[in-house]
Amino acid sequence: MEGLWQKVELVIVKAILNFLIKIMKLPGCEKQIQALAQILKNNHGKEEIEPFRIAVPDEEFVGEAEDTLEQLKIDLDGLKGSFVTGQKDKEVEIVLRIFRNLHTLKGVASLFGFNQFSTISFTLENYFDALRMDKAKLSLESFRVIGHCLGVLKYSIITRENDQLGKIPDLDDLINQVAALPINPVKAEKGLGAKAGIDEEILNILAEYEEHRLEENIREGNSIYKIYSDFALGSFDDELANLHVQIKELGEIITSLPSSDGFDGNADKITFMILLASKKNLMEITEFLAAFNVRVVQCTDKK
């Protein structure tokens, strides 16, 4: 009976320790975590604690950073391929994905106190923000500088055993290299959404980037559509994501918003309006989405 209670006690102590680790994942808490681990070892023996992994903040950061940097490398290679072959549509999607991943990388580094790592991530994020807003243009020099910065970030993780985790040599030089990349704001006509007949209530809630992409698509002569669909409240997130995958085959999704313009006002359902920019005509859009419970409204014609 005594052995059973010892096992129960061990499970409880492990659960408490695991909880403490989760709420203590802040820079500088490694010693406290290791002290708790030592107490557990002293009370229950090394063989009992061995299967129980103590996750310190450094390990958490390394795991997150390595995964994100790997995806950034893949996307940067894909972006370069699209740039060289002139595939503008693919460029837009990849630039946005890189921007979001850099934003995540910056936040994770800042959370765990790796300020130099965060600073470079933030510098790159700002450059990709300019790219997505068409305030900068890609060049072969852009890829050289960005690739070099990502390589430095990767190296700062590889050398973590030498107490160099997150430390960036020549930090100012890297920042200056990114800052030297040309920023050329494009002076484009504003207010095209309103002129094209897009509802004011939609225009008023678009984020700056969404408004920019809407106007760019109108400027390029693409048609704009509103696609309405009802979803069950309990599963709308998965259903909406699946519909997004299908609609992306037709063009660029500008935004996706809850709408009061539902089909039947069913309280157990929620309606979303998806704003789509596409080179396809209304008949092609409708036929492609025939298998889905959607309603398509054309806002603008191709010019």
Rank of each mutant, 00 (worst) to 15 (best):
M1Q: 11
M1G: 14
M1L: 13
E2I: 10
Q6C: 05
Q6G: 03
F19E: 11
F19L: 09
K22H: 05
K22F: 01
I23C: 06
L26C: 02
C29H: 02
C29S: 01
E30H: 00
E30S: 00
A35I: 13
A37M: 04
Q38C: 11
N42K: 11
G45R: 10
E47K: 01
E48G: 10
E48K: 12
E48A: 15
F52R: 05
A55V: 06
V56Q: 02
E59Y: 00
E60P: 06
F61H: 01
A65T: 10
A65Q: 04
D67L: 08
L72W: 09
G78R: 04
L79K: 15
L79I: 12
L79W: 15
K80H: 11
S82L: 03
V84I: 08
Q87E: 15
K90M: 06
V92R: 07
E93I: 05
I98N: 05
N101L: 08
T104M: 02
G107M: 09
V108Q: 07
L111C: 10
F112H: 03
G113F: 02
I120R: 07
I120T: 06
F122C: 05
L131A: 06
L131I: 08
R132T: 02
A136M: 07
L138I: 08
E141G: 08
F143H: 14
F143V: 12
G147M: 07
Y155C: 14
I157A: 00
I158C: 08
I158F: 03
T159Q: 15
R160G: 15
R160F: 15
E161V: 01
E161W: 06
N162D: 15
K167F: 04
K167W: 03
I168A: 04
P169R: 03
P169L: 12
P169N: 04
L171I: 14
L171V: 14
D173C: 05
L174T: 04
I175R: 13
N176C: 09
Q177C: 01
V178S: 09
A180M: 13
P182K: 04
N184T: 15
P185T: 05
P185C: 06
E189C: 08
E189S: 10
E189K: 13
G191C: 05
L192R: 15
K195L: 00
G197P: 05
E200A: 07
E200P: 04
E201S: 14
L203R: 00
N204C: 12
I205V: 09
E208Y: 04
Y209A: 15
E215Y: 02
N217D: 08
E220V: 13
N222S: 10
I224P: 09
Y228I: 01
Y228Q: 03
D238P: 03
A241T: 11
G251V: 02
I253V: 14
S256E: 09
S256Y: 07
L257A: 00
N266M: 14
A267V: 15
D268Q: 07
T271V: 05
F272C: 12
S278E: 07
S278I: 00
S278H: 00
T286K: 14
E287H: 12
L289C: 10
L289F: 10
A290S: 09
A291N: 13
F292I: 06
N293C: 05
V297A: 06
V297N: 11
Q298A: 03
C299I: 14
